[in-house]
Amino acid sequence: MSQYADINGFVTFTYTTLASDDNKPATIKTAVQDGGDWVDKVTFIMASNKASLVTGTVINPFNGNPVEGASVILEESSSSKHHFFDRATTVDGSYSIAMLPGSYLINFDINIGDANPYEGAYSGSHTELRKDGTIKLRSELQLSQGQTHTFNSQRVILTGIASNFPAGTEIYFTPIGTQKHH
């Protein structure tokens, strides 16, 4: 399907779902002219009466700036099925994704470029910092039907200074009264 913008820059199109599309996420991609460049923009939709909405903002944990073009991956806890939303964040770092209710692991793939203040790489159970300037963050997420859930990437980032720990030590933060690690 191809549509062109009107004189005001608006595009109207109709996407008709089939029965086989029910409860499946879909991606709408557009090419937007920005000066002499064409920029790809994506929107994620789902045809469902059961959907939950996951929204949030992805930030660079080292400088607090929003991250445009971060990928969001939702992994179903029961089946390990992955739902990839490539370049899901906008220029202000925000994203909005419709998913079916359930238990998921939410993963953020963030390119921080030269903002990494550390040398080398780090790999833990919830965070991976790579030498190439990318970070992978992972956390648990429970989605309920008809609800909007806000999940910001910084919820899984804590900064501070700790000393006298041997190399490779992982630190977990557990809310009082639970056994869940954050």
Rank of each mutant, 00 (worst) to 15 (best):
S153T: 09
R138D: 02
T134I: 07
P166W: 01
T134W: 07
S139P: 00
K131N: 10
T134C: 03
Q154I: 12
G160P: 05
V156T: 11
L158I: 07
H149T: 15
H126R: 14
P166R: 01
L129D: 00
I161A: 10
R130G: 00
E140R: 14
T127F: 07
R138Q: 14
R155Y: 11
T150H: 03
L143C: 04
H149E: 12
G146L: 09
N164Y: 15
K131T: 13
T127L: 15
N152E: 04
T134Y: 04
F151Y: 15
Q142Y: 12
N164M: 09
L137C: 02
I161F: 11
N164L: 10
I161N: 13
Q142T: 14
S144Q: 14
G133M: 12
F165L: 15
L141Q: 05
Q145R: 13
G168Y: 09
P166N: 06
L143I: 03
L137Y: 06
S125R: 09
G146T: 08
V156I: 14
Q142S: 12
S139R: 14
L158E: 09
R155W: 05
F151Q: 03
D132V: 02
I157V: 15
L129H: 02
G168V: 06
Q145E: 15
S125G: 14
G124H: 00
Q142V: 15
Q147M: 12
L158D: 08
H149P: 00
F151L: 08
Q142N: 15
K136P: 03
R138H: 03
K131L: 09
A162I: 05
H149C: 10
K131D: 11
A162H: 04
T159Q: 08
V156P: 00
I135F: 04
S163L: 10
Q145Y: 02
R155M: 11
L129P: 01
Q142C: 05
L129I: 15
S125H: 07
F165P: 06
G124A: 05
Q154T: 09
T148D: 05
A167F: 13
L129V: 15
F165H: 13
P166M: 00
N164R: 09
I157S: 07
G124K: 00
G160F: 08
K136V: 14
G160I: 04
H126N: 11
L143T: 02
R130N: 13
T159P: 00
N152D: 15
L143Y: 08
H126E: 06
F151M: 10
S163N: 14
R130I: 00
G168K: 13
E128T: 07
T127Q: 09
Q145D: 08
Q142P: 00
S163K: 11
I157K: 05
R138T: 15
R130W: 04
A162T: 08
G124I: 02
G160C: 06
L141G: 01
P166D: 06
I157Q: 06
G160A: 12
Q142L: 14
A167D: 11
N164I: 05
S144I: 00
G168W: 07
L137G: 01
N164H: 12
R155A: 06
L129M: 13
K131H: 01
R155T: 08
S139M: 13
G160W: 03
F165I: 03
I161R: 09
S144T: 12
L158T: 08
A167W: 10
L141E: 01
R138M: 12
L141K: 02
S153N: 09
F165G: 11
G133C: 06
D132W: 01
G168L: 06
L141D: 02
R155P: 00
S125W: 01
